[in-house]
Simulated scan of single mutants.
Amino acid sequence: MEIQNKKCVIILDEALPLGILTNTAAVLGVTLGKERNEIIGPSIKDKSGYAHEGIVAIPIPILKGNEQLIRELRQRCYTEEFSDCTIVDFSDVAQSCKDYDDYTEKLKLQQEASLHYFGIGICGDKKKINKLTGSLPLLR
């Protein structure tokens, strides 16, 4: 799929404190970049010869929602219609862990319904992403 036909969005629970919002957005952005590395442009050298690592080649709007909306969007992404989209999430379990091993062990003990989602990132076909999130306002 051509980059101009892709869209990525991050939806955050607007009720969270600023520090957790920014941490959640950072984690989701890094994870989307890992999962969909085609959205990252190549490294570039400036006129002085210094290298600048590639950044995301498409905008990633940060949208506002609430915990219920985030859960509903996440569930919709697991339907056949959106099965080709990438979805990443960040929850209370992830935010409370000291390291990845701790996260792995704690998440294995959780039922999905008990997780409190702080945010999700979705990437895929622009039309599908717009259908899912086109009515959501920007987080400001």
Rank of each mutant, 00 (worst) to 15 (best):
Q4H: 09
Q4A: 12
N5Y: 12
K7T: 00
C8P: 01
V9D: 09
I11Y: 09
L12W: 05
D13I: 03
L16S: 04
L16Q: 06
L18P: 02
G19M: 01
I20S: 02
N23G: 01
T24M: 04
A25V: 12
A25L: 11
A25P: 10
A26Q: 09
L28E: 03
L28W: 07
L28N: 05
G29K: 07
V30C: 14
L32E: 06
K34R: 08
R36E: 11
E38N: 14
E38S: 14
I40V: 14
I40Y: 11
I44M: 13
I44N: 09
K45M: 06
K45D: 10
K45I: 03
G49K: 07
G49E: 01
Y50M: 13
Y50H: 15
Y50R: 15
H52A: 02
E53F: 13
E53K: 14
G54Y: 03
I55M: 12
I55C: 14
A57Y: 02
P59R: 10
P61D: 08
P61G: 11
I62G: 02
L63E: 05
G65C: 11
Q68D: 13
I70W: 03
R71T: 09
L73N: 05
R76I: 07
R76W: 01
C77D: 10
C77M: 14
T79Q: 12
T79L: 13
E80G: 04
F82T: 02
F82I: 01
S83N: 02
D84R: 10
C85T: 13
C85F: 02
I87L: 14
V88I: 08
V88H: 07
D89C: 00
D89L: 00
D92I: 05
D92K: 10
V93R: 02
V93Q: 03
V93C: 09
Q95H: 12
C97P: 03
C97V: 00
C97L: 02
K98C: 02
D99Y: 08
D99C: 10
Y100V: 03
Y100G: 01
D101I: 10
D102S: 06
E105W: 04
K106V: 06
L107W: 00
K108G: 15
K108H: 13
L109C: 10
L109F: 00
L109T: 13
Q110N: 02
Q111W: 07
Q111H: 13
Q111P: 01
L115R: 00
H116R: 13
F118M: 08
I120P: 04
I122Q: 07
I122K: 11
G124T: 09
G124N: 06
G124F: 11
K127C: 00
N130Y: 05
N130D: 15
N130P: 03
N130I: 14
K131Q: 14
L132F: 05
L132Y: 05
T133L: 02
S135F: 04
S135C: 08
L136E: 15
L138N: 14
L138W: 07
L139C: 04
R140A: 11
